[in-house]
Computed example of a mutant assay.
Amino acid sequence: MSAEPSSGVLPAQALRAMFESGAIAADLPLAAGQVQPASLDLRLGPKAWRIRASFLAGGVRTVAERLDEFAMHEIDLSGGAVLETGCVYLVPLQERLNLPAGVSAAANAKSSTGRLDLFTRLITDRGVEFDTVAAGYEGPLYAEISPRTFSVLVRPGARLNQIRFRRGVAALSDAALRSLHDAQRLVDVEAQIDGGLAFSVDLSPPADGIVGWRARRHAGLIDLDRIGHYDPEEFWTPVRPMRAGGVILDPGAFYILVSREAVHVPPDHAAEMTPYMAVAGEFRVHYAGFFDPGFGHGPAGGAGSRGVLEVRCHEAPFALEHGQVVGRLVYERMTERPDILYGAGVKSNYQGQGLKLAKQFR
């Protein structure tokens, strides 16, 4: 009798095999760099719809069946199209799934997407939750996109979100996480473990005094294909701490900050950033995020890598202090070690990072 498949997150080599078997299909061949160590970048298709409200398909209907209720007009993305702030769009993705019964998936915004305050979620047919794909799902994938701060120019093939596939239960218990930290040191400070590994905000000013960036409202258009192109101060205001320390977050404002901890994700594990509970204050880390195997891993060139935090304040101004806990890292086991690691063998924009804006900025 053959052994049961191991539970955990599927690595890069398994994702390529899923393409070969038809469990993942696409309109075009895989693009260079599309397969990451523990996730797959998803590509926008050639058209979009401006919709009047966000929606889910519900338990028995398809997205296409519900689209007539919400679509306002269709947009051709083939020559590039502007997605405007304050609007909601639905884009069919190039990838579709035919998952085995034991494999489920979850999606998240890519790092650069979150750092542009570009809200995006995955929707499936008969789906009752965003960013969640049920085990055995067969059907198309859609991205809901809503620019919050900056209008963006997009084209077919743009990769705004990513998907991670799991077999069974992958998350580590707190006891297993403590053992992993003792063996491989996941953060460079004392580990706080309770429902995941806590991380906090760094508001201790470096030599230039800048501890973060606050997005400017009514800034110019960002072409997502222009890498290292834009002057940060045309789109962002530097944030410096008050004389007494800390910063006061303004309601509705969007900030890029950085974790106090240097984070390490060992090669045989993956991690996911989850927002802190609302009881922490009138703010939240705005986007969750995937951390691939090898992030912050010394042999992969990542020693000292920090977690970048996308933070939005809500109803009341809030005084954020240095070292305040703002989120959790949930670690998951891989089914096997990926054949590529973040920062080693793939083009990783944020390996070894500190406070860093999206890759479109100089």
Rank of each mutant, 00 (worst) to 15 (best):
Arg96Asp: 07
Pro156Trp: 00
Ala105Thr: 02
Phe119Lys: 13
Arg185Phe: 02
Glu69Arg: 15
Ala175Val: 07
Leu122Gly: 12
Phe130His: 15
Val128Gly: 07
Arg185Tyr: 02
Val128Tyr: 03
Leu83Val: 01
Phe119Ala: 15
Val169Trp: 06
Ala191Cys: 04
Ser104Pro: 10
Arg115Thr: 02
Thr124Ile: 14
Arg166Val: 06
Val154Trp: 05
Pro92His: 12
Asn108Trp: 05
Phe130Ala: 13
Tyr137Cys: 00
Ser173Trp: 04
Leu99Asn: 09
Phe130Pro: 10
Pro100Ala: 09
Glu190Leu: 11
Ser173Gln: 04
Arg164Met: 07
Ala81Asp: 01
Leu153Met: 12
Tyr137Arg: 03
Phe130Leu: 12
Leu83Gly: 00
Leu186Arg: 11
Asp68Ala: 15
Pro92Gln: 11
Ile123Ser: 14
Gly102Arg: 11
Ala176Arg: 10
Val128Arg: 10
Gly127Ala: 10
Val128Cys: 12
Asp194Trp: 04
Cys87Ser: 13
Pro140His: 03
Leu122Asp: 12
Thr113Trp: 12
Val103Pro: 05
Ala101Phe: 07
Ala170Trp: 06
Thr149Ser: 01
Arg121His: 15
Leu90Trp: 00
Gly136Pro: 03
Glu69Gly: 14
Ser146Cys: 08
Ser173Cys: 01
Tyr89Asn: 08
Asp76Leu: 00
Asp131Leu: 02
Glu95Asp: 09
Val133His: 00
Ala134Pro: 03
Met72Val: 15
Asp174Ser: 04
Arg121Leu: 08
Ala106Asp: 08
Asp182Met: 05
Leu172Lys: 05
Val133Thr: 02
Ala71Ser: 14
Thr124Gln: 00
Gln162Leu: 05
Tyr89Ser: 03
Ala106Cys: 04
Ala143Thr: 06
Ala134Lys: 11
Glu129Cys: 01
